[in-house]
């Protein structure tokens, strides 16, 4: 399957004349707005999530965003499928049997292009590219959209999360660590986090901005060695407060001696900051729990049309 390119990044210069990238972004934004308000009643939206067999919170954001979009009445149907939960990716032929549904927009609720978006999802959904025309259900056109993590709004959402988790903490005395999964299965997995770090670093607000990972260097477990500021803010570039961001990474950070119960089964969410290695450590909830992701999912369907 051909690899898709990312969306054009927002230029931050102060030029008076709009360049092509700015014009393109304006139209993408306008198309995104239209898509958020104009019903497409001959179309369905399919949100693809990872899900979990051990953590009950993994699928929660995808289900919540689907419910939000369903209430807006923009699509004939809004459904989710998961790799590790039900309905499964392989249930795709069962989801939209209504012959009045002609177009299916598939949006991966994943942080990056990588093993899942480029191998697992196309294989399990039997997608042949950005557009797949089906014999059955007859004439259905399945549009494979970019993952939510590719959206240009991610940078601002990460910054917002960082500010919310450490209110009033001077950014010039703070290191911001964006932590992603990383995997040896696909070189692209870590790229999204690196891109976000580059974009945030270019703003020159924080003393340092670093990308770190669970499964490849630089490892999040080395956070104290990687930073030298009195404050460290860690934002998980993950979809949910599930197994990795709520149970695994806190152990790697030293916040917990061993994995705790799932977030939804805890009486209270973690308190910030925690003082470790002589630093104030702030740990945010996963970026994908942000309610604005519902709009981002909708805008990714427009991004495909403009690609």
């Amino acid at each position: 399957m051909q690899e898709r390119g990312g969306l054009a990044r927002e230029k931050r210069g102060k030029t008076q004349k709009k360049n092509p990238a700015e014009i393109s972004r304006f139209f993408a934004s306008f198309a995104g707005y239209l898509l958020r308000v104009i019903p497409k009643l001959d179309a369905a939206l399919l949100i693809v999530g990872h899900g979990s067999t051990v953590n009950p919170d993994s699928s929660a954001p995808s289900l919540a965003h689907a419910a939000t979009i369903r209430r807006r009445g923009l699509f004939a149907e809004v459904a989710c499928v998961f790799w590790k939960e039900e309905p499964a990716l392989r249930d795709w032929p069962l989801l939209f049997p209504d012959p009045t549904i002609h177009d299916i927009f598939v949006v991966p609720n994943f942080i990056s292009e990588g093993y899942f978006t480029q191998t697992i999802i196309p294989r399990e959904l039997e997608l042949t590219g950005d557009l797949t025309e089906r014999d059955f259900p007859a004439g259905q056109r399945w549009h494979y959209c970019p993952p939510v993590g590719n959206h240009p709004a991610m940078t601002e959402l990460l910054l917002q999360r960082a500010r919310e988790v450490a209110p009033g903490v001077p950014e010039r005395e703070t290191s911001l660590l964006i932590v992603g999964h990383g995997t040896g299965l696909n070189d692209n997995s870590a790229v999204a986090a690196k891109q976000q770090v580059a974009a945030i670093a270019a703003l020159d607000r924080y003393a340092a901005v670093l990308s770190t990972y669970m499964e490849e260097p630089p490892h999040i477990a080395d956070w104290a060695k990687l930073t030298d500021t009195p404050n460290v803010v860690v934002v998980p570039f993950f979809i949910s407060d599930g197994l990795h961001s709520y149970q695994d990474i806190p152990v790697l950070l030293g916040l917990e001696p061993e994995p705790t119960a799932a977030a939804s089964q805890q009486a209270v969410f973690r308190q910030n900051p925690r003082h470790l290695h002589g630093r104030a450590l702030y740990y945010a909830s996963a970026i994908g729990t942000e309610p604005r992701f519902a709009d981002i999912i909708l805008e990714q369907t427009a991004a495909l049309a403009l690609a």
Binding site: E86, P87, A88, D91, P93, L94, L95, P97
Partner: peptide, 11 residues
């Protein structure tokens, strides 16, 4: 309760 099972039965 039973995701996609009604769809499976109909199919």
């Amino acid at each position: 309760f039973y995701p996609a099972r009604l769809g499976a039965l109909l199919a």
